[in-house]
């Protein structure tokens, strides 16, 4: 009988700590599939953040380093600079990257570091229990904005994929999501492209994934999937904001 599907080899048998309906688990599986398909397990290091994916090192039979909050791109810089021919993946959420870690991601982009950054944007601080993040939508209810995010006190959402596309040190920036099977396939394609690019010496490759957070958003999983379409995508449009073809090697 022909095998058409199997569990990625790189996965351990640890159950993830993600909530039902969360996008992290889907992206974690896509990463695992690509590590298997691209044979990255023996030659790669995964850099995990603080946030809901704080336990992710336990899900992969692969070397990993756990960065402090926001510091993953700086940590990855040290790894990639000392091991330039190895695969280095940075994984961060919006609480980690866009708030406390904004300086680190921006300067990794400024320096045109040759690693891939996977950015999970669920528009909320998930792990600490659903507080307002810099990516929270205007009017979105969180535990620190009980009547919705207001511009007067909290300013505007941050469009990371567009910002990164404007950085000369970034060779690829795309925003994807995982709320339909087709979009999951497209996400895998984007991740694969980002992983391949780190060996082309063109600078940082960046994939933003809009991820539903049913727990933080106070919605049923299916309604959280709908909220991605109805509320997130109008503010955070999908698509490639920078193609690697436009960028020469360094």
């Amino acid at each position: 009988m022909k095998t058409i599907y199997k569990r990625p080899e790189v996965f351990t048998d640890v159950n993830t700590s993600y909530c039902g309906g969360c996008g992290h688990g889907i992206v974690n599986k896509l990463i695992a599939e690509l590590i298997d398909e691209m044979e990255l397990r023996e030659k790669g290091i995964l850099v995990w953040p603080i946030g809901c994916s704080v336990y992710a090192d336990k899900y992969y039979k692969m070397d990993a380093i756990c960065a402090l909050h926001g510091r993953a791109p700086a940590l990855a810089t040290g790894i990639k600079r000392s091991l330039p021919d190895k695969f280095v993946m940075v994984y961060q959420g919006d609480g980690d990257m866009v708030s406390e870690g904004m300086a680190e991601i921006m300067h990794a982009a400024v320096r045109a570091e040759n690693f891939s950054v996977i950015f999970i944007n669920n528009a909320i601080y998930g792990m600490t229990g659903g507080q307002m993040a810099p990516t929270t939508l205007l009017g979105q209810v969180t535990s620190t904005s009980p009547y919705g995010r207001a511009v007067a006190s909290s300013g505007y959402p941050v469009n990371m994929a567009e910002i990164m596309a404007n950085m000369p040190g970034v060779c690829y920036s795309e925003r994807v999501t995982v709320n339909t099977p087709q979009r999951i396939t497209a996400t895998k394609k984007a991740l694969k492209k980002a992983f391949e690019l780190q060996f082309e010496n063109k600078g940082l490759s960046f994939v933003e994934v809009l991820s539903p957070c049913p727990t933080g958003w106070g919605k049923k999983p299916i309604d959280a999937m709908k909220m991605v379409d109805e509320q997130l995508i109008p503010i955070y449009p999908l698509g490639a904001f920078k193609s690697p073809e436009e960028v020469p090697a360094k």
């Binding site: 708030s99 904004m102 229990g129 507080q131 535990s143 620190t144 904005s145 006190s153």
Partner: peptide
Amino acid sequence: TEIPQFISQYIANGEMTTVYVPVES
């Protein structure tokens, strides 16, 4: 975490007049 969370709720409900700044770090 709960401390800024409770405070922002008190402020949102008009129980405090404190200016709450949700900084990034």
